[in-house]
Each structure stands twice: as C-alpha cells, then as structure tokens.
Design a binder for these strands. Structure first.
Lengths: 341, 341
DNA sequence: CCGGTTACTGAAACCGGTTTCAGAGATTGT
DNA sequence: ACAATCTCTGAAACCGGTTTCAGTAACCGG
C-alpha cells in the first residue's frame, strides 16, 4: 500500500557526510557556496546512497509544484492533439518541469467541486479553447495564477496571454482563391461550434473575400459543420435535397471537408468539377484524400511550443506577449480544382 | 515569483470552526466520524474561506502523490494518441487522480540523469511501447513501483501487467481474406520498426495464413514499412522498380497503407484491381480514403481505459491481470477488392 | 450500578525538504 | 594590529497537511 519509498532522506546524507542538512540542501540547489571537500563528500554520499530528493517535501517548502497543467476539453480526437502535446512537452521538458494533463469534465470527478488543475498542483496552466469556463478563469486570474490560452482569446477585460493561429487572413486567401481562380460564386461556409473562436475568424475572412469580390453575402450559405465529419456530411446532404445551389464549400476544417466530400460523392457530384471543396488545418491524411484536399496549414506543434514558452516566461519573469498570432499558409492541392490531371 | 498561493490553511479553518486541525483533517478525508454540528461548521467555514488543501503538504504527509504517470515515446503523432489518452484520462479522472505525462527524451532534460517520471512524482506508471529502456524498468520493478505496459510485453522474467491488442488472429484473418476471397498469393508484408512487438505478432499471423493456405513464405516479400507513410511509399516504389512481383500488400498499419496506396497510384497501378491493400488500426480517416481501406479495428480508447484501470487496481490492491489481450475485428471495405462498384 | 465498548475530539509528533539567522575563521584595507 | 568584510557552516523554524495517542462523554448489556 504505502510504498517504502526511497526512504533515504537528506538527513541521512547529511549524517554520513558529517555536515548539516542545510549544507546538503545548499549543495544540491547551488543556492550558496560550499567548500570543495564538503561538496565532494556530499556528492559521494548522495551517489552511494542513491539519494533523490522527495519532490513533495520540496514543493511544500518552496511553495512551487514544478509542474504546469494543460487543460483540454473532453473530446480531443483528431490529429492535432498529438503534435500540440508534443510541442508543449518538448519545451516543458527542456525546463525540467512536469506536464499535468486533465480534461475538465466535472461529471467525471467525484463532483467535489474544485478544478482538477490549479494553483495547488501546478505553477501555471495552458488552457485549450473552451475547456474551462469563464468563472473559473476569473477566479484563477484574480489570484494571479499564471495562465496562457491557446486557440482562444481571454474573456473580456482579462489580460491573459493567448496564442492563436492566423485564421482570418488565410480564410480570406483561400476563399479568394476559389473566387478568382475557379470562378466560384456560391460558396458555402460550414461553421464550427457556436462560439468557437477559430470558426468566428474564419467566417470573417470568408465574408471579407466575398465582399471584396463583389459577391453578396447570403446567410443561407452559412451552415453548421461543427468541425465534425458526419454533421458536415448531413448538412451537405440536406442542402442538396433542399435544392440549395452552390458551387464550392469552405468546410471550416479538414474534418468537415472529409464529410463534405463523402456527401457529395454519395450524391453523384464530382469534386472538384462540380463543386470545389477546401478545408482548414492540413491534417496528416488530407494530402492523401482523392482528390487531395486544398486547405490551410496550421502550425500545430508550434502552437504547443510557443504556448509552453510563453507560460514559462510568465511564471519566471511575470511577462509574456499578450497575443501571438502564428502564421498559416494555404496549401493548394486538387479539391479546389487545381492540378487536376 | 513565489505566488502568495491560497494561503488559507487547515489551521485557519480549524480556528474559525473552533475545532482542532485534526478534526478538520478527519472531516475532509472522512477518515473518522465527526459529529454533525462540527461537520456543518467546518463545511461552512471551508466554503466561506474557499479552502483547498495544499496538495504537496498532503503528499508529503501521506507519502502518496495522487498522480499516475504516462510515459510515451518522443514521436507520438497519429490518430491514436488522442483516443488512448482520452481513455486513460477518463478513468484516472474518475478516481480523482492526476495524470502526468512525459516523453522519456534524455537529451531534452538537463541530462540530470534520473527518469522524468518515477516514484517521487507518481504512484504508478503506464509505459507505452518502448518509451522506457529495460534497465530503468528493472530498477523500478525492484523497488516495487507499480507499472503497467501498453502495446508491449514486459522484459523477460518480470511480472508486469501488460495490455495488448489481438494482433496475430486479426492479421491471420485479414491475410486469409486476401487469399481466399481475392485469390491473392504474392502478398507483401510491411513490417514495423525493428523489435516492435505489434509488428512481430502481425507478421506471425501473416505467416500462419500463408502456411495454412499452402503458400510458401517468401522472405523477399517482407519489407520495411516502419509504420510510416513515406517509408512505406518508398519501399513499394523501390519494389516496383526492382520488378518484384506482388498482388497484395498487408501494410502493417494504416499509415503505411496510405503510403502504399500513394506509391501504387503514382506508379499507375490500380487498387484494388491490380493490387489489394489492407492496413491495421482503422484510423479515423481510413474509411474516407479512395478506395476505402480494408483494415483491422483496434480498440485504442479501450486500451487506455483498461491500462489505467489495471494500474489503479495494482496500486490499490496490489493485483492485476498479468496480460490482457483486447479484441480486434477486421473491417472489410474496398481496398481489398470487396464492395467495388 | 458498573465494566466495557463506542463516538468524538485535541495536542503534538511527523513527513522531508528550504531558508533565516547567527556565528566562526579567513581575508582584506588602512 | 584592528576593524570590516567575506566565505562557509549549523541550529532551528517553517511549509501545511496526516496520524498517533490519550482522553472525555455517552451508551450498552447484564
């Protein structure tokens, strides 16, 4: 039950090295000079006893946890979880910190109220999209708990650093591509979940592109895709049944694009001849679809790295960029109508 | 720098509720009965003060960390990371535990020797595939540190529970499908990385199917795929250039299958008419490829759940199944030659 | 009515580190 | 030579919980 643990404590080391625990502590943390021979003795004894400091004791004494938390929403499927995590983990590791992960699913935890991640078990927090609600964010903010947000902006009025990707410019560009190169004029936009910020900005880019090219915005062409395949698929199927006319779909994200292409195929429409389809994200498989998907590359791993970096800066120096927008680039493949042989 | 932290301690609660800290502790942990009115008072004060126990202090006192670790290898791309993590996190959360994640990349950490995850910061460990080397495993094993392994077996002689998926039977079945239904006889197997255990068992299933159907095993048909797209792609391209004859590819995993299909297409071969292709994993996009990929469904989320469950059992009761084999099922789609319209 | 549980409570030790404070010896400036 | 400074060290307080131990009051069976 209770493991014996390493059981060799700093006092054991101190005794065998004939010094005080204070000195051992100082040697370990390089927090004050220690004479050479003492250093050597301690070094030797530590190695001999295979001493490793008890993390919890240290945390208690220093009031630091040496860990940062990552709060994600419950359903994190999809390609992009891996790379993002990889990015985060790599810089967290470089700084000798631990990474604590949790979904904020209150139903799961014994309903014991509190947040699974917070000041009591982490020194800082990376908040993914809307994995945390505003009252909790306010709460942490007031107690000056370091946080950075990814794929969202902070709630109104709070100065919390955030890392986002360039949504609007890229969306604008890809929709403009549909218009100028492929002469599409009835372009559906499949929006993401209500309130999703990426989706919001993508829609803005979409509308700007329409606007600049003299195409009137038609609210009937903005439909729910929810960033999910089967929903996107159903939406397009419905649209076809209802006789909605369109010649292109900007699918909100690659997942939705996959659903769209499936629905179109099932309905006997050819992509890209009859309908152009473009996505957003450039997921791993997107280049292998037929036709290969034209989309926007999002630097997911980089988002992770930068977020962790910012958080660590914030923890150490109390400062960080207030908003970082990572560049995206559009990737022209076949599903828009280009490169078709 | 040092946050003020919540600063409200158990003693504050005790004072305001006019009881001793011991009683408060007992109330919080339900470790001994407390009279009703006292309970009420404590409850009220805690709520009023927004008291949350200091984790590190508790850890120190109880010699438990209340966290379990997940050790993964550095490159965890691919779909399956998300679901596995989701599975783990869900049961870990149900038990009020934290999940600590780390890649075991020694180069990253300051080279300060020790493992990033271990007895000092976790109560148990889930070890993914070959993310941890044998000497470290032995080391932890000797100090009776609870571990379970996923997607691998423990090193020779150690009784560490492991969770694997049914590789051999499913591989046997899918290869037999190629032979019996589609009359394929020159079937390439693209193996995974050297020493990868899943790959090993899949190869065994492959060979058994050949054997039972009177097809002689040809070592020239077992080629490196490394579970990576571009490597699989190159391998197949090379094979075609070298004039290797084959009429089917069992791609080791879906990722490799995608690479194979790309290479075949580029070479002007039709799938499945000229060459059947099958994979393993049933990744999210596999059903959306053209042709849709025939493959084996692996219960990835379930692996995560079971692993966490086993680890928790092991930590609590000291017992767990020594080996669990999760069932897989083959999913017939088009790339083998079925359902083609 | 009495011995023996049972239910509840508080004081104090303890977990294993860090950090403050004060002091001893060596070194420096004048 | 003497004071001031610098370098190194140890004793003890402290971080915020848990747990042991002892003790009081209420309850129970005979």
């Amino acid at each position: 039950m209770t493991r014996k643990s390493s059981s060799v404590t700093i006092r054991d080391v101190a005794r065998q090295a004939s010094v005080s625990v204070a000195t051992v502590s100082r040697f370990i943390n390089q927090t004050a000079p220690v004479s050479d021979d003492v250093a050597e003795r301690i070094q030797a004894v530590m190695k001999n006893l295979r001493y490793t400091p008890h993390i919890a004791a240290r945390n208690l004494a220093t009031n630091r946890t040496n860990a940062i938390g990552l709060m994600v929403s419950f359903n994190m499927y999809g390609d992009f979880f891996g790379p993002m995590l990889n990015g985060i983990e790599s810089v967290v590791g470089e700084h000798g910190l631990n990474l604590l992960i949790s979904t904020n699913n209150l139903a799961l935890r014994g309903g014991h109220g509190g947040m699974p991640l917070g000041p009591n078990n982490a020194d800082g927090l990376i908040v993914y999209a809307d994995s945390m609600d505003d009252v909790d964010i306010h709460h942490f903010y007031e107690m000056e708990f370091p946080m950075v947000m990814v794929y969202r902006k902070p709630p109104e009025g709070l100065k919390i650093p955030c890392i986002n990707i360039e949504n609007k410019a890229a969306s604008h560009k890809i929709v403009e591509h549909l218009i100028k190169v492929h002469h599409r004029r009835r372009i559906i936009y499949l929006r993401g979940p209500e309130g999703q910020q990426d989706s919001y900005w993508r829609e803005l880019g979409y509308r700007k592109a329409l606007d600049e090219n003299g195409i009137e915005y038609d609210p009937l062409l903005v439909l729910p895709g929810e960033f999910e395949r089967h929903i996107a698929s159903m939406t397009i199927t419905d649209a076809l049944l209802n006789g909605l006319e369109f010649d292109a779909v900007f699918a909100g994200d690659d997942d939705a694009a996959v659903g769209v292409m499936g629905a179109l195929r099932d309905a006997g429409k050819r992509v890209p001849q009859d309908v152009s389809v473009v996505g957003f994200d450039d997921q791993r498989t997107s280049s292998f679809l037929t036709p290969a998907l034209t989309t926007v590359r999002a630097p997911t791993l980089e988002v992770g790295r930068v977020a962790a970096q910012q958080l660590i800066n914030l923890m150490r120096n109390g400062e960080a960029e207030c908003e970082i927008l990572l560049p995206t680039e559009i990737v022209i493949r076949e599903s828009c109508g280009c490169h078709t042989s």
